[in-house]
Write a protein that binds this DNA or RNA. Structure first.
Length: 314
DNA sequence: TTTTCTGT
């Protein structure tokens, strides 16, 4: 490499570093902005969450058995997974070891829900990721389904929502995480293969030392302020089926610890290359995620029963 | 280790 090339590479690297640092601080800014009940600040370009001034009143949640279109879900894990409530009830799909709500317009999930135990995240001989292939979800109408071709050459990874390594107890369970309904376009380097992967590994580490862990994961499409001062939701779509590229992803984790107490962790990460910072930088109050996503998580748990909320275990 | 893509 010539000296000139080296200089250019160094300059670009510094530029990227500065850019990333700025992106994170902007994200943090939108967090505090929201806290102060100001939807938008003077800084244009920040992603914002919906305002918190609307008074919160929870609608009555019908018991699952009274849902009109509810049929007995012939999957043994479903009862366990929905013990604390569905985030929403549209286009539900249940698989051997996770369930999801599908978003036909965006060609990806609204959310996926997993129940983890120490056994489920332990390695089992013969269950290997390398044998698995991403497949279309045949249960979704082809108009609303994403395909491998949509992702090909897009520059985005096929990022699992329910992670493959969370479902190691059978080949079928892991295989089902490769169904494209459980996948969303994620930035590869710096996100899916790095910061987001670190979050998934952290959740598995918690699962290994807890009685039960419930994880809900999904995409967000957050508005940001454009130069005209108005808020717009802007996101890329990829492939012939226009699969939406989320601006952010959330992960909500309910932990039943070894003493049987409940703890809550809730994260939001921007779908961008992220610097190597501690996970607690991505804590987001649950209510902000609920408003932005149009979901309500774990409604059967009164919020005051959590022993810890967004505290990283030491 | 786990997350993937691209080019062979």
């Amino acid at each position: 490499m010539s000296r000139r090339t080296t200089t250019v590479v160094a300059a670009v690297s510094i530029g990227i570093g500065f850019y990333l640092g700025r992106r994170v601080s902007k994200f943090q800014h939108s967090y505090s902005t929201f806290y102060d009940n100001h939807v938008s600040s003077s800084s244009s370009g920040s992603f914002v969450f919906p305002p918190a001034h609307a008074k919160m009143s929870l609608p009555a949640v019908p018991a699952i058995s009274t849902q009109p279109e509810n049929k007995p879900l012939a999957v043994n894990r479903v009862g366990e997974m929905v013990k604390y409530g569905f985030p929403s009830t549209d286009s539900l799909r249940s698989y051997e070891d996770f369930m999801l709500s599908y978003d036909r317009r965006n060609r990806t999930a609204n959310w996926v829900l997993e129940h983890l135990t120490p056994e489920k995240v332990n390695k089992v001989d013969g269950v290997e990721r390398s044998k698995m292939k991403f497949t279309e979800d045949q249960s979704i109408h082809s108009f609303h389904r994403s395909t491998n071709k949509d992702y090909q050459g897009s520059g985005y990874d096929r990022g699992h929502l329910a992670a493959a390594a969370n479902h190691r107890q059978s080949e079928n369970a892991m295989n089902q995480t490769f169904i494209l309904s459980n996948v969303a376009p994620q930035v590869g380097e710096g996100f899916n293969r790095d910061a987001w992967n670190n979050l998934e590994k952290y959740v598995r580490a918690i699962a290994r030392k807890s009685r039960n862990v419930f994880v809900c994961t999904g995409p967000l499409y957050l508005p940001r302020k454009e130069p005209d001062g108005k808020l717009y939701v802007k996101y890329e779509v990829i492939g012939a089926n226009h699969v939406s590229v989320p601006t952010h992803f959330f992960k909500v984790v309910v932990i039943e610890n070894d003493k049987g107490q409940l703890e809550l962790l809730s994260f939001v990460m921007p779908n961008q290359p992220l610097p190597n910072v501690k996970l607690h930088h991505y804590f987001m109050p649950l209510e902000m995620i609920e408003r932005a996503a149009g979901l309500n998580f774990f409604q059967n748990i009164p919020k005051n029963t959590f022993k810890k909320i967004n505290m990283i275990a030491s």
